[in-house]
């Protein structure tokens, strides 16, 4: 399959306009990018964890989804879509359905890294034929930018504010992609909005069309929470990848593969300085925060390189 940007962008959208997400929000870009990988004629059931995405895309009586859709609660998108998939298997067995359906859940980092982790882990372990997509914007944006376990260290979030004695969030970001990979599922990958969306598209296609459970972690910036100019979404993602803050990699049947290695790593400070959530790191006396961030990214990158070699 050769990726053709023009053809892909001209496909009918499966998440249509009119939803209420902010301009410059990564969530809808992630959803459209993933759903574009569905092959023509294949139907889908989309599930959402409670999130910005959910409250903005299915506000009664309007839905932005062309496919069947279910939202149940915040912490149970994994189990909910697993239930739909179980119903599909038995209804297919009984001859009640002849169409092909794919099952795709979307949750933010709150619904995935934190409150929904158990439900997701269970669904992955049970082997449902489904894809779980985390649109990771690194904080609880729906309730107003509170820290999550995905929030990077030093982030100024509303429950980890940078103050006179606190440097912002104290803890490093949880490595969820590796936690999912440890479930030994057939496919897990990390991606973002990179270049012409080829990486997102190909990973989505693999995730959807690999039999069994698959997981995609899509870095999906939030202009309100990260405090960048909405027009800079693609630029922010590019910096995340080129600084190695968010490496592009995949684990296919246990084999780790790095999908992109920057020729020259861009210093992390270039990523940090574009975002208001890190602004306090640039105040006099806080240079150590920038140094610590660089050190952490370097360590994580070296560990990843070892896994991918």
């Amino acid at each position: 399959m050769t990726y053709n940007f023009h053809d892909e962008m001209n496909k009918p959208e499966r998440l249509v306009g009119g939803h209420r997400l902010c301009a410059g929000c990564g969530a809808s870009v992630a959803v459209r990018g993933v759903l574009r990988a569905l092959e023509e004629g294949d139907r889908a059931v989309v599930a959402n964890a409670t999130s910005c995405l959910e409250v903005s895309s299915f506000m009664y009586p309007y839905t932005a989804y062309e496919d069947s859709y279910i939202h149940s609660a915040f912490e149970n998108a994994g189990a909910t879509i697993g239930g739909v998939e179980a119903a599909y298997r038995v209804m297919k067995k009984k001859g009640k359905i002849d169409e092909t359906f794919k099952f795709i859940a979307f949750g933010g980092d709150g619904g995935t890294y934190d409150i929904g982790l158990q439900s997701l882990s269970g669904a992955m372990e049970r082997g449902h034929d489904m894809v779980y997509v985390c649109y990771d914007n690194e904080a609880y944006m729906n309730t107003g930018i509170q820290r999550s376990s995905s929030t990077p260290r030093f982030t100024d979030a509303t429950t980890s504010p940078a103050g006179t004695v606190e440097p912002g969030k104290r803890q490093n970001k949880k490595n969820l992609t590796e936690i999912l990979a440890a479930h030994d599922i057939p496919y897990a990958a990390q991606t973002t909005f990179w270049g012409n969306f080829k990486d997102l598209h190909e990973k989505s296609h693999k995730a959807i069309y690999t039999e069994g459970p698959a997981f995609l972690n899509v870095l999906s910036p939030c202009p309100r929470g990260w405090r960048y100019d909405p027009a800079d979404l693609a630029e922010i993602c590019k910096l995340a990848v080129n600084t190695c803050v968010w490496p592009l990699y995949e684990i296919e049947e246990g084999t780790w593969k790095l999908n992109y290695e920057p020729r020259k790593k861009v210093p992390v400070v270039e990523f940090l300085k574009r975002q208001g959530r890190f602004a306090h790191m640039f105040e006099p006396g806080n240079e150590w925060m920038i140094e610590e961030s660089q050190k952490y990214v370097d360590q994580q990158w070296e560990k990843l390189l070892k896994k991918c070699r």
């Binding site: 697993g82 239930g83 179980a86 119903a87 158990q118 439900s119 269970g122």
Partner: peptide, 17 residues
């Protein structure tokens, strides 16, 4: 499932399906 929370979530997904 791994919990009753997921048991009811599974039932909701399945019945809705």
């Amino acid at each position: 499932v791994e919990s009753e929370h997921s048991a009811m979530s599974t039932c909701i997904g399945a019945q809705a399906a």
